Amino acid sequence: MLPENAKNALNGWIKAATPIIEKMTGQSDISWPDARASYVDDLDKLFPAPEGVSFRHVDLGGVSTMLVTPDNVIEGRVLFYVHGGGYVHGGVKAYRGLAGHYAKQLRAQVYVPDYRQAPEYPFPLPIDDTFNAYRALLEQGGDPRTLAISGDSAGGAMIVTIMRKARDAKLPLPAAAVAISPWADLTHCGVSARIRNGIDPICTTDFLDQLAALFLAGELPTNPDASPIFADVRGLSPTLIQIGENEVMLHGATRLASHLGENRVRTTLEVWPGMFHVWHIFSGLLPEADHALRNAVRFIDDAFTSELDTNEQA
């Protein structure tokens, strides 16, 4: 059972998605920018930023990016966070709460790129924007040993793709990666897409199929940039995957963890019983959200320490 305040927030989240669903199903002639604005404004109210963090917008490679800075920051610590929304309906304003909690606990600056989205900007433009922002962040001259990357849903898949692109471009990889409820398989062929459909209150398989069609715009869902379970993931950074047991994306996330591990990427998988899609956004409202975020912070913090210790001994 969810606490009453978390239950109310969950109901509010479902209601906030109404303009998106009506736009996708042709029940509304609202524009996509207006539908997104309504959605992210409602999420910002439901999951507000915590005290002790400040926000401003910066440019990273031509991509407007929300920079979150906690009052207590360890110099040089940086988290590159990729928001979710099915490549269609997310926005950085909706993540002031989650990014703020992440920044405070990690004591790091958090950069959240406001990448372009489908259907106006379909595959691969959201990925290209995010990679350009990551490249620009590296060009600022920070230490990659204290840089981590994280993301949720579509962003949870994109962090794997961004690391691959960085590897292939011979750019520094982050010290660690955390994928929250990653949308790693756009084919939705796994068993969880069937037996958990209707259990997760946030995502259904039909909804994801519609989002995928808008994003892919004719591209195959097996393209490795869209579905990292089909990608060459050798040489990527240590990765933590957190997924809710109730999620239709469960099979894709566990398959991604297996794929990473089989390709010699140090991988940690956490499956949270009873949890729904991106429950982390309920930080401050739901104990499981606070616990999962603490685990993510510990994973990154340990990677930062290990990287620095290894280089000092070398």
Results as ranks from 00 to 15, higher is better:
6 A>D: 03
62 G>P: 04
35 A>L: 05
277 H>R: 01
77 R>L: 09
146 T>P: 12
274 G>Y: 09
42 D>G: 08
51 E>V: 13
222 T>Y: 03
173 L>R: 10
78 V>C: 14
197 N>K: 12
151 G>I: 03
122 P>L: 06
58 V>Q: 05
107 R>W: 03
202 I>P: 06
73 V>T: 04
272 W>F: 10
37 A>W: 06
139 E>D: 13
310 T>G: 00
168 D>S: 13
210 Q>A: 15
141 G>K: 01
289 A>M: 06
271 V>N: 03
84 G>Q: 07
55 F>K: 01
18 T>K: 15
207 F>V: 01
277 H>C: 01
166 A>N: 09
250 L>G: 10
306 S>I: 07
114 D>F: 07
158 M>D: 10
142 G>V: 10
170 K>Y: 15
29 D>F: 05
214 L>M: 12
5 N>V: 13
88 V>W: 02
277 H>P: 00
57 H>P: 00
95 Y>F: 13
306 S>A: 12
133 A>H: 01
154 A>M: 08
143 D>G: 06
204 T>L: 12
258 S>E: 15
161 T>W: 03
141 G>L: 03
292 A>Q: 02
95 Y>P: 03
43 L>P: 01
102 Y>E: 00
201 P>W: 10
191 V>D: 13
246 N>A: 11
28 S>R: 06
310 T>H: 04
149 I>H: 04
98 L>Q: 11
18 T>R: 14
108 A>I: 02
9 A>M: 02
174 P>G: 07
53 V>I: 11
78 V>L: 13
117 Q>R: 14
173 L>I: 08
250 L>P: 07
235 G>H: 14
309 D>E: 09
314 A>G: 12
66 M>C: 10
147 L>A: 12
246 N>M: 08
236 L>I: 05
82 V>W: 05
30 I>T: 13
307 E>M: 10
55 F>L: 07
127 I>F: 00
291 H>L: 07
132 N>W: 00
227 S>K: 05
265 V>F: 13
295 N>R: 09
274 G>T: 03
158 M>Y: 04
5 N>L: 14
92 V>Y: 02
200 D>V: 05
105 Q>F: 00
186 L>R: 11
159 I>E: 01
162 I>F: 09
98 L>I: 14
206 D>G: 12
19 P>C: 09
262 E>W: 02
202 I>H: 06
46 L>Y: 08
31 S>L: 10
312 E>K: 14
308 L>V: 08
72 N>S: 00
264 R>C: 11
194 R>E: 11
120 E>G: 03
33 P>A: 11
270 E>Y: 11
241 I>V: 06
305 T>Q: 08
11 N>K: 14
77 R>Y: 12
13 W>V: 03
98 L>V: 12
207 F>K: 07
130 T>W: 06
144 P>N: 13
116 R>G: 08
89 H>Y: 15
249 M>E: 11
200 D>Y: 12
114 D>G: 14
16 A>K: 02
181 S>F: 08
120 E>P: 01
139 E>C: 02
67 L>D: 00
123 F>M: 05
175 A>C: 12
66 M>G: 05
95 Y>N: 06
211 L>P: 08
151 G>F: 05
34 D>E: 15
222 T>W: 02
134 Y>L: 08
251 H>N: 14
105 Q>E: 07
97 G>A: 13
12 G>Y: 04
288 E>N: 08
226 A>T: 05
21 I>R: 15
135 R>Q: 10
225 D>R: 12
257 A>I: 11
129 D>C: 04
222 T>F: 04
115 Y>T: 02
236 L>C: 08
31 S>D: 10
